[in-house]
Design a protein around this nucleic acid. Structure first.
Lengths: 302, 302
DNA sequence: CATAAGCCATATATAAAATATATGGAGACA
DNA sequence: TGTCTCCATATATTTTATATATGGCTTATG
């Protein structure tokens, strides 16, 4: 069971044809047949069904394929990391951010600060939704995430609370409530609520609906936005109102104004998510910087 | 960069001494020195500092070590998973059930029992009709089915008889025969027979018609039901009577009563269907559990 | 200060392996 | 039925890893 075998396995699975896979691998067909056969016998399980038209994955093969891909990926990454280290870089951190998180000033601040402290570390950022972030974390495509709890099904993700962000009401420009100092949710009963699909952020979604319920009304759900920040243009278009994290008021797209919510107001909770059990120094470091930044950076402009 | 190299790297890092590491690895010192050296030059970084007293990790080595351990771990896990799959302890089983089969107590019982015995196996259930089940089986969309024989045209489906279920007559509530202890089919001559389309279950369909013929009458076919369990609401609506597998008496939809049939009564035969020639341990296990469950669970309430 | 011991590096030889070449056989397709 | 595609097997070849033998460097020790 060598790296080579993983590569053979994956390539054959992708082509569905040993001959073509051999070509793709730059080798001849017989040795490939032989290696796969040997692999199967050493594992004790058939990975492929030999068919006259080629081969197809068995159940076991189908189950094991992603695992093999993961190992190949990690190996490639290992080599890339090593090359990076050879050039004086000290490491790499793949950071996943939940929707609209980059708009929260503390976050880019923390990231900038971290790259000053650790100039040898390269960072890559990606924005996605909470469930996808967990998924990416667990399949080692990301190292640390900032997400909106809860995470699905107590996945093997360790969640470290980071901050509680107030929310604002987004109204289309010229709306009659625009000049109120703060707005009670109950006054929104008649307005369609623009919201993102619950799958993309069940925690925040539920917090919004719970706040409506606490205010004694049920929202009439308007059009669905493709993501959290995506609600803004829909509000601007006059299709309804929206409840958004405070940080979104930074989006200066004309046509929308943001307003304080009278209590009870929902909160948008953010948390750090990392893989359970694992805590390399790099990640630990980054977490410390993040937490500090969120503490000292609390005074957000209203 | 092979699995072997990862192992060499980790072992040397753990012992801090190439000679001892070689011993631990069951090899001699020179080849180990050579391999590590080759590894380092292919990665472009030094992993170890050669010291007179042994070797110690460089910064790069320290950074890469957890990554290497992870890869070794995943490889071991891959092999363990494969062995688990080989023994049927892990994996996924796609189970197809013929119409109304889930209502038969033995079946959910067996399924529950199986998931207790084999907690590593995930199951997915789907209900469909016999021909569609065979089709799904042969195109590898399902792994095992419980169907109503016969299967179409000597398909490459192996059929293993499972059980013979008695049938009941379904009468609309208040029907004059309701208080009879058992009903002879011949008395149903005047009543329209509600039945499902023959394509959906030719075996059971033919068994019913054969029983009518044996009783000396030909049924007047009433409205067609979309499936086996679908006959019940039509009977409740007073459109006729129906012959159904005994397990359907569990459907407590008011408006229908179920009654014993005097001999000759049709039977609803159920069988296991799997792909011809193939019998992975997982499937074998499941079949065993099914057969046992049907044996010990025969005493169905009448 | 000299000597011995411990440890890694190099060179050559050997053994093990993966792979290439050649060929056969089974099923699909026209 | 013949041809084509694709996988399996057998043998030969090459590559690769490993073992053996040896040398050099450093540190501990009398």
């Amino acid at each position: 069971m060598d790296i080579r075998h993983f590569r053979y396995f994956v390539t054959i699975a992708e082509t569905g044809n040993i001959t073509k896979a051999a070509e793709k691998l730059g080798m001849e067909q017989p040795p490939l047949s032989q290696q796969i056969r040997r692999l199967e016998s050493s594992l004790g399980v058939s990975l492929f069904r030999r068919q006259p038209r080629g081969v197809s994955l068995t159940e076991a093969g189908l189950t094991l394929l992603p695992h093999a891909r993961l190992i190949l990926d990690l190996r490639r990454q290992f080599i890339e990391d090593a090359h990076g280290l050879a050039q004086g870089k000290k490491g790499h951190l793949r950071i996943g951010l939940a929707g609209a998180v980059p708009l929260l000033p503390s976050i880019p601040f923390a990231i900038r600060q971290f790259s000053n402290i650790a100039p040898g570390v390269t960072l890559s950022l990606e924005e996605s939704n909470t469930p996808a972030l967990c998924e990416a974390l667990l399949s080692y495509r990301m190292d640390i995430t900032i997400l909106r709890p809860p995470v699905p099904d107590q996945a093997n993700v360790r969640v470290i609370p980071l901050l509680d962000e107030p929310t604002l009401i987004a109204l289309p420009k010229g709306h009659p409530f625009t000049n109120l100092p703060e707005i009670h949710l109950s006054r929104l009963a008649a307005e369609p609520l623009i919201i993102f699909p619950r799958e993309l952020g069940p925690g925040f979604f539920d917090a919004i609906l719970a706040a409506y319920r606490d205010a004694g009304i049920t929202p009439s759900l308007g059009q669905q936005a493709p993501q959290i920040a995506g609600t803004i243009p829909l509000v601007a278009a006059g299709l309804g109102v929206s409840i958004v994290p405070q940080s979104l008021h930074q989006l200066h797209t004309g046509g929308v104004t943001f307003h304080k919510i009278a209590r009870p107001a929902p909160h948008a909770t953010l948390a750090i998510g990392i893989r359970m059990g694992e805590q390399p120094p790099l990640i630990h470091h980054f977490i410390t910087v993040l937490q500090q930044a969120c503490k000292t950076h609390m005074e957000l402009p209203a």
